[in-house]
């Protein structure tokens, strides 16, 4: 079979997956008695209907971009870093902690913000190294370890919000006391978007792309992910590489948490990770771990999230419809890939 032909087969299967996902979501909408076309129109309008709305999409895009980028590293090493939600949370906690520590110190705000970002990366990396240590030294599958640590991270956030860091007077689910304006990442006027956050996200992706593609480190990580036994026997210190993958991913997740605190919420809130870790897992699976596809696909997913915010108001639909569509997309993509491989194998016989 020629390369060109098999490429066209791939594309047609992927196209079929998108159609099936849309069909599936449409059926769900029909069952819940909502007009599907109007719902889709609302999502499109709600995400790219105006410049303001699109800037909101970008606000959601940055943390998703960061988490997906981080997950590229762990997936390359063959690891399922489900614990990424907790790593975002710990990043947010460390950032909040540092901001609280220095907000009255008189240091220049720019410096405090840089330190806050670094603290976030440290927090995420530490939390990830826990999951990594459990995996490499304790023999605990990273999925179980990570999931457990996610719950611990949530509990830790709640304890801080209602305990040591509670608002003057009484703690509330709305989070800690907001930070003063000068400790916010500067925003483009008229929007909630910080250009700095976007720059951080793109730099992170670029760095990871270059490292994975061109460095010895990236190649060894790939080898570990594809065959850990051969890699070990060929002389790669596999435990060290798996730990590094966790720490790198955790640092990027922590950075996402730091962005959530400094650029979006300006305080610590209970669900600070906003599900960007899980959504990042979906994006990473959908793009089959290809770094260049991170930008468009995570942008699309962010647009779905923002676009469906209006649904409850207009159509009395829950805004989780975007989640249904995102999940369906990934499922049908994976399924069609399986079907494609079966068909091709049969054709070969």
């Amino acid at each position: 079979m020629t390369r060109n032909k098999s490429r066209w087969i791939n594309i047609s299967f992927q196209f079929a997956a998108i159609l099936l996902a849309l069909l599936f979501t449409t059926i769900i909408l029909l069952f819940s008695g909502a007009p599907p076309l109007q719902a889709y129109a609302n999502i499109i309008n709600g995400s790219i209907g105006s410049l303001k709305k699109f800037s909101d999409v970008l606000v959601a895009w940055v943390p998703l971009l960061l988490t997906t980028t981080g997950l590229l590293v762990t997936f390359t090493a063959g690891l399922w870093n489900i614990g990424i939600e907790g790593q975002i949370t710990l990043g947010a906690i460390f950032t909040t902690g540092l901001l609280r520590l220095f907000q009255d110190s008189g240091l220049p705000p720019g410096l405090i913000l840089i330190l806050a970002m670094l603290a976030g990366m440290l927090g995420g990396a530490l939390w990830a190294s826990l999951a990594g240590a459990l995996k490499t030294f304790g023999g605990v599958n990273e999925i179980f370890g990570g999931l457990g640590l996610n719950f611990v991270a949530t509990a830790l956030t709640l304890w801080l919000i209602f305990g040591p860091w509670k608002r003057p007077g009484i703690g509330s689910m709305s989070g800690t006391e907001p930070f003063p304006n000068h400790l916010w990442l500067p925003m483009i006027s008229g929007t909630r978007l910080s250009i700095w956050a976007v720059i951080i996200g793109i730099i992170a992706l670029a760095v990871i792309y270059i490292v994975l593609r061109g460095s010895y480190f990236g190649l060894r990580l790939k080898a570990v992910g594809k065959n850990i036994r051969s890699s070990f026997l060929i002389g790669i210190p596999t435990s060290r590489y798996m730990m590094s993958a966790f720490i790198l991913c955790g640092a990027l997740a922590g950075l996402a948490g730091a962005v959530q605190v400094t650029a979006v919420y300006h305080r610590l809130i209970p669900s600070i990770s906003s599900g960007y870790g899980y959504l990042g897992l979906l994006v990473a699976m959908l793009i089959n771990y290809k770094a260049l596809l991170v930008i468009p696909v995570s942008l699309f997913f962010a647009a779905l999230n923002i676009g469906s915010i209006q649904l409850p108001i207009i159509l009395k639909l829950d805004s989780t419809l975007s989640g249904v569509l995102q999940g369906a997309l990934v499922l049908f993509f994976l399924m069609m890939d399986g079907v494609r491989q079966r068909v091709l194998r049969k054709a070969e016989r």
Partner: peptide, 20 residues
């Protein structure tokens, strides 16, 4: 299973086995 790494090319193998 233990010697080579499926999914990597010959060049990549030589790089992995060589000195960095």
């Amino acid at each position: 299973e233990e010697g080579l790494i499926p999914g990597l090319s010959l060049t990549e193998h030589f790089v992995l086995a060589g000195e960095q």
